[in-house]
Lab assay of single mutants.
Amino acid sequence: DHDVVPEDKFQETLHLKEKEGCPQAFHALLSWLLTQDSTAILDFWRVLFKDYNLERYGRLQPILDSFPKDVDLSQPRKGRKPPAVPKALVPPPRLPTKRKASEEARAAAPAALTPRGTASPGSQLKAKPPKKPESSAEQQRLPLGNGIQTMSASVQRAVAMSSGDVPGARGAVEGILIQQVFESGGSKKCIQVGGEFYTPSKFEDSGSGKNKARSSSGPKPLVRAKGAQGAAPGGGEARLGQQGSVPAPLALPSDPQLHQKNEDECAVCRDGGELICCDGCPRAFHLACLSPPLREIPSGTWRCSSCLQATVQEVQPRAEEPRPQEPPVETPLPPGLRSAGEEVRGPPGEPLAGMDTTLVYKHLPAPPSAAPLPGLDSSALHPLLCVGPEGQQNLAPGARCGVCGDGTDVLRCTHCAAAFHWRCHFPAGTSRPGTGLRCRSCSGDVTPAPVEGVLAPSPARLAPGPAKDDTASHEPALHRDDLESLLSEHTFDGILQWAIQSMARPAAPFPS
């Protein structure tokens, strides 16, 4: 592969990997390779389809078979030569091979799209000592099968071997295949498990690692696999990028399955594409389908809103127990993405979901129960707010008499603000006073009005108090039968009158 990737590009890729991570280095090298001529790309395919690569990765054979028959990708048995050289000459001794072996032994695996480039050397060096003999053996194999790289107009793939297949390693990572398949204008990513390549439709969760975000852009890794992070704060999961590491605690105790298979379609829109997988259930989501939507993949363990709600429900009964003089119970939860139609709101002032922060849900004790107040519409209280300059209440639009249902020339009671006709409430011909108009209920007259088809109010509507207090003497005590009587009149003013009279009014101040 030294004929494909020059030394300066190799060093530039290593520097970019240390600065921005393996995914960015892979993407940059792939983009550079696509700008080369067809001879360089053909050399790339020839390096990929060597015999030892085909033996190690069985899924490469179907890719090789898909090439046109007129494309010669065979390799000479006596060494490598550029395709432009007409004579089959043995190339001179390859010093770059020693360079590659020494550099890969030092860096474990470079971040390139060629056999030198995919593992994360920093994480491997940190986690190597417990498994040094086995990992050293794996390093000797890295130059042979560490990076199976493929690129063409139909298929483009980048393979990364790992030393996680050490025997006896619980939940060992089998390997990473960062794979971009450009077929019919689409893009897919796969993962390699035990020599087999699994596409998103049959993606397997190998051991402790999972394909957290099938994305090839942005600074985030394709698999949430930063070796420096180790395990999740809650004892979460091992990262795919942690090559040759000792077994780590796999999943939280509440995880239903340690080796679950995540779905390959969004649980909201039932469509495929780039998904984020939940650590607590097999569901996966688009970032845009979450509520609120996320802009980037959160670091650490992530769970959907259903799993978060289940966790909150487990903690909430203990938080609601009476604990005198104790601060509110704080339950730190990872930043969760909410699927459509589901929402768990945190306290005000918290950062938005999706940031690399930890939301704190506070379970406050329930407030003391209070008697429910009568629910009145805002339009129902409008007549009470229509007060004239002299303190006389004006008529609201649409006000109707509670007896006849007519809204023409209605009066407004100064005591309960109900609309009424003087002739309907006082049919006996009582003279109307000039000021202080009161309806039949507030004036103490319980004589029913002779209106055909309208039920008369119940005599129990009024329960006047002592006459010594004029204001308190007109406080009506309405009961269920009074409400039914008012409802039978089918008037809004009657219902409003009952609601206003049912509310307690402050006692009249004593004259000074």
Rank of each mutant, 00 (worst) to 15 (best):
E342L: 15
P249V: 14
G436K: 05
H421E: 02
T408E: 06
P464S: 08
L287Q: 08
G407F: 10
L252Y: 09
L364F: 10
Q316C: 11
A396E: 08
A460P: 05
V454K: 07
C277Q: 04
L290W: 14
W302D: 11
G444Y: 06
E342S: 08
P397T: 07
P374L: 11
D271P: 04
D481I: 01
V246F: 15
E489V: 03
L250W: 12
D377L: 11
L478Q: 02
P506D: 01
E484G: 06
P509A: 13
H415W: 04
R400D: 08
L496W: 14
T471Y: 15
F510G: 05
H421Y: 03
R432Y: 14
V360T: 12
G300M: 15
E343R: 11
R270W: 10
T357C: 04
R270Y: 07
Q316N: 05
T301K: 07
E321P: 08
P506F: 03
E330Y: 13
P476H: 04
R295H: 00
I500V: 04
D264P: 13
L483N: 03
C281E: 08
L483W: 04
K362D: 03
S488V: 03
C386N: 03
P509N: 01
S299E: 04
Q257W: 11
M503H: 10
L376Q: 05
L275T: 08
F510E: 05
P328Y: 12
C413P: 04
P397Y: 10
P347F: 03
G405R: 11
P457D: 03
T471V: 05
R440S: 07
Y361I: 09
H415F: 08
Q260M: 07
P317Y: 07
H363R: 10
G436L: 06
R303F: 12
E296C: 15
P374I: 14
G405P: 03
F492Q: 00
P511R: 05
S339A: 12
H382T: 09
G388C: 15
T301D: 03
A418D: 05
L373N: 12
A288W: 12
V246P: 11
Q313P: 12
C269H: 06
D279W: 09
P334K: 10
R438T: 07
R400H: 05
F420H: 02
F285T: 14
L250P: 09
V344T: 14
V451Y: 09
P368L: 06
E475R: 02
P476N: 07
G398Y: 05
D377N: 12
